[in-house]
Simulated assay, not measured.
Amino acid sequence: MSISSLLALRIGGWIAWEKLSGYRAKYISDVPQSAETMTPRWLTAVLCNGVPGAEVVSVKTTGGSDGTTARRAISLTYNAAGMAAGMPAKLFTKCTPHFRSRLQQAAITKPPCEVGFYNEIRQELVIEATDALFAAYEPRSGRTVMIFHDIAAKGVRFLDIFDYVTRDMAEQMVRTMAGYHGKMWRDPRLTNGHYPWLRSVLAYQRLLNDALPYEARSYVGMQRAHPHFPAELAARPNDVWRAHMRSVEICCDPTVPQTLIHWDVHIGNWYLTADGKMGLTDWNMNSGNWATDYSYAIVTALTPQDRAAWERDLLALYLEELKAKGVIDVPRFDDAWLAYRQQMFHALFYWTFPLGIGSLQPRMQLPEISLRNVERSGQAIVELDSMAAVGF
């Protein structure tokens, strides 16, 4: 199964209507299709509510890029009341104006999860992370909008896999993950339907498998990743896929602690503040076991040499941080080490898949970034004997 033709027709129809009708969001209940079509009237409704007399006078886009969403920096001017109130002038937006990206986002129902996180959970977490000024999703059309402070204008530097992550930076990443994992550790709201948009890692992976199709394109990605894909794994691709699915099942085993999972903690979703703090963005929320985030972050952020040298100390720090956050049933180190080894596969396939995408799917990442992530995660799977850790 893949993305349904009915969904494609519906999303395509909405995009055509938006263009033909000249649709523009006007009210706070509306969702614009792009930063370029945001109007001062709509921005006034969503940003100036509660600031008497404040209005947005003009808006212009000042740069950006396209991937799974369209990311744009925008610059606003305000009337005298808005200026006197210190309303933010430099903002950053994420929208879904393009057919292929909007269709894929709608098929895997990612936007409600990120919007839900910012609207319902973010304020509970005491961590360095992006915070949305406004977030909304329109399910019929698939339009999504999120507005943030433009933290890059405040000296924040967004990282990528070609940046060297120091020991201090890695320890800060560990503390951040323990911060949101510990806060939501065994929280019943994660599994009792309190957040209707939240799903388990296993449910999400099965959705990806059906909608994209994830498994088939990952096999293509394995071939395209040669010679970066380890020969030991390339020789048994079906077993590696089954090991991946087994690791996801282990992640969602109800007998092990479940918590809030970011799910996409590669180094490209981390940033470094002007005062040297590591922060996290692009929240693609699920529920599951802590190790799926932890393993993914460590294996993709660090060079293989640093990962091998630091991984036991970093894991010990993570467990200490959980205890400091009030977690009562902190895993024993040996159990945590096994979980760390078991959860390496998500990182591997989350970067193998983009290499294998078809012509109708949006390009999510540059190939050189995907290849570096595949190389690091594949090497870790081999060195840590992760196949054996999940029974293969």
Rank of each mutant, 00 (worst) to 15 (best):
S141P: 07
S58Q: 13
M245E: 11
I108L: 14
D275S: 14
P139V: 05
A8Y: 03
A225D: 09
L103A: 12
V145P: 06
A216R: 05
N192D: 15
R100S: 15
T144Q: 12
Y219K: 06
G142S: 10
V374C: 11
D163E: 14
I15S: 13
K94I: 02
L103E: 09
S377E: 07
N286T: 11
I3W: 05
I28Y: 04
G155F: 05
Q205E: 11
T61E: 12
K325W: 02
L125K: 03
R372I: 07
F392M: 14
A234L: 10
P97R: 08
R100I: 04
T300S: 12
A243N: 09
P97T: 09
M169G: 11
L371H: 09
Y164D: 15
V115M: 06
R206Q: 14
Q258A: 08
I3M: 12
T68S: 12
R41S: 08
I108N: 15
K60C: 12
A316H: 05
G358V: 02
R312T: 14
H98D: 14
M387N: 10
D329K: 05
W14T: 13
T39E: 11
F158I: 03
A339Y: 09
Y195V: 08
R140K: 12
V51A: 00
A324Q: 13
L6K: 10
V145C: 14
F117R: 03
M387W: 02
A45C: 12
I151D: 07
R71T: 08
V57S: 11
G12T: 13
N373Y: 07
A107D: 15
R217P: 00
L338H: 11
A73I: 01
R41A: 12
G391E: 10
D253M: 03
F349H: 06
Q365T: 06
T61L: 01
E36P: 04
I328P: 00
A178T: 04
T300K: 01
G358C: 03
H226M: 04
F333Q: 07
V174H: 08
A380M: 07
I161H: 05
R199P: 04
I74Y: 08
L208T: 05
P32S: 13
A170I: 06
G86Y: 00
E138S: 11
I298C: 13
V330M: 07
Q223G: 07
W241F: 09
D168H: 10
A152P: 01
Q223D: 14
E249F: 03
S2F: 03
V201M: 11
G82N: 00
N119P: 06
W351R: 04
A225W: 03
T273Q: 07
K90M: 06
T96K: 03
G50C: 01
I328R: 09
I121A: 04
M344I: 01
G82R: 00
K323Q: 13
T144L: 08
L355Q: 08
K94L: 04
G326W: 03
R372Q: 14
D293G: 04
N209P: 00
M1N: 09
E120V: 03
V57W: 02
T61N: 08
E383S: 13
Q305N: 08
C113G: 14
L47T: 01
F92I: 02
L7V: 04
